[in-house]
Design a protein around this nucleic acid. Structure first.
Length: 324
DNA sequence: AACGGGTGCAACCGCGAATCC
DNA sequence: GGGATTCGCGGTTGCACCCGT
C-alpha cells in the first residue's frame, strides 16, 4: 500500500507557473489567507495541487520576499549558521529577512560550497581538508592511508592547477592569520545562533548535532570586516543576525581541546540535553538545547570564525573547485 | 550560426512531523 | 489512542539561459 498522493495527479497542471496563475493565487491568498492549501487551488480556480501552490507562494509570490543577489553579509550569515546547523535551510533562512529556504539552499549548492572548497575547507564539516586528512590517517591502517592520501593529493593537485590556471590568484596577498578586529559585543550574534540552534532536534542517538564543537584546534575562517563595511546593498534592511554580525565580526564557540575532552564534553552535553529536553517539554521543544548551548558559550570563551581571511573577498567564480 | 557544457533557479518528490477527527 | 490528513523540510530534477568554441 503506497502513500496517499497529496492530490489527484490527473487534471493537475505541472511545471512553470504563468503570470495568470500567479495573479489568481496571489489575489485569492490576499483575500482568504493560506489556511488550507488543499482547498486553495480549487477555490482559486487553479488546476494545481495544493503543494505546488504553497511552494509557489512561499518561494516566489510572498510580498515580503527579497529577490536578487545575496549580499556579502548574507553570505557570511549562511556560512556561519551552516557550520552550526548543517543543512537546516529553513532555520538558516529565518535569519535572513526575505530569503526562503529554497533560496538559501540553491545559493549554498551553486556558490558557497564551491567557494569553501576553493578555500580548502570541507563544506560539510567546515574543517580544512588538511585537518580531515590528518584525522583519516589516525583512524585508518597505514596501507589504506597511503592509497587514500595519494588519491586525495592527486585530486587536490589537479584542482589547484585548475584553479590557478583559470584565474591567477596572488597567494602572497592572502592573509590566513591576521587576528580579527573586534570582539566587543558578540552577544547579539550568539543569541541568534542559540535561538536557531535551540530549534535543532536531536539526532538518533540522542546527541545534539554540534558541528561547532567539533571545530577544534583553533581553526577558524571568517570575514574581512572591510567587506561588511563596504557592503551597501543590504543597508537598512538587515536581519538581526546580519546586524549583529556587522557589529562584532565573530562568533563565540566552545572547543574541545582533545579527543578525550571532546568525548567528555559530548557525554556532558548529552546529559544536559536529556535533562533540558525534559524541562523543555513543559515549555516547548528546543528550549533546553538553547539554554544548554548558551551555558556552553559562557563556559568557553574561545572564538571560531575569528580570523580574517581575505579569500572571502574573492568572487565565488574565482574559487571554483569541483572537488567534492 | 550551431553546438555543447556549465550554471542558476524554479519546481517537484518523498518523507517525517504536526494536527485533526 | 490511532488512523487520516495536512504541512514543512531537505534533496533532487528539469530546463532556460549563458558562454566559450
Amino acid at each position: 500500500m503506497g502513500r496517499i498522493p497529496c492530490c489527484e495527479k490527473e487534471n493537475v497542471k505541472r511545471g512553470q507557473w504563468t503570470p495568470e496563475e500567479d495573479n489568481k493565487l496571489a489575489s485569492y491568498i490576499a483575500q482568504h489567507g493560506t489556511r488550507n492549501w488543499r482547498l486553495i487551488p480549487k477555490n482559486a480556480g487553479l488546476q494545481r495541487c495544493g503543494k505546488s501552490c504553497r511552494l509557489r507562494w512561499t518561494n516566489y509570490l510572498r510580498p515580503d520576499l527579497k529577490h536578487g543577489q545575496f549580499s556579502d553579509a548574507e553570505e557570511h550569515i549562511i556560512v556561519k549558521f551552516h557550520s552550526v546547523l548543517g543543512n537546516r535551510w529553513s532555520l538558516i533562512a529565518a535569519q535572513l529577512l526575505g530569503r526562503t529556504d529554497n533560496d538559501v539552499k540553491n545559493y549554498w549548492n551553486t556558490k558557497l560550497k564551491k567557494k569553501l572548497s576553493g578555500m580548502g575547507i570541507d563544506p560539510v564539516t567546515h574543517k580544512p581538508f588538511s585537518h580531515l586528512m590528518a584525522e583519516i590517517t589516525t583512524t585508518l591502517n597505514p596501507p589504506q592511508v597511503s592509497h587514500l592520501a595519494e588519491a586525495a593529493l592527486g585530486c587536490f593537485k589537479d584542482e589547484m592547477l585548475h584553479l590557478l590556471t583559470k584565474k591567477r590568484v596572488d597567494l602572497n596577498q592572502i592573509n590566513f592569520s591576521s587576528p580579527n578586529l573586534n570582539h566587543n559585543n558578540p552577544n547579539n550574534f550568539n543569541q541568534t545562533v542559540d535561538n536557531a540552534a535551540g530549534k535543532m532536534k536531536l539526532d538518533n542517538d540522542g546527541n545534539g548535532i554540534m558541528k561547532l564543537w567539533d571545530m577544534g584546534n583553533g581553526f577558524s575562517y571568517g570575514s574581512s570586516s572591510s567587506s561588511f563595511g563596504n557592503d551597501e546593498r543590504n543597508e537598512g534592511s538587515a536581519s538581526p543576525a546580519v546586524a549583529a554580525w556587522r557589529g562584532h565580526g565573530g562568533i563565540r564557540t566552545s572547543v574541545a581541546e582533545t579527543a578525550a575532552a571532546e568525548e567528555e564534553e559530548r557525554r556532558k552535553l548529552k546529559g544536559e540535553v536529556m535533562e533540558q529536553e525534559e524541562i523543555g517539554s513543559e515549555g516547548g521543544r528546543g528550549d533546553g538545547m538553547m539554554m544548554m548551548r548558551r551555558r556552553q558559550h559562557d563556559q568557553h570563551q574561545q572564538h571560531a570564525f575569528n580570523v580574517d581571511n581575505d579569500l572571502w573577498n574573492l568572487q565565488a567564480d574565482d574559487l571554483i573547485n569541483h572537488m567534492v
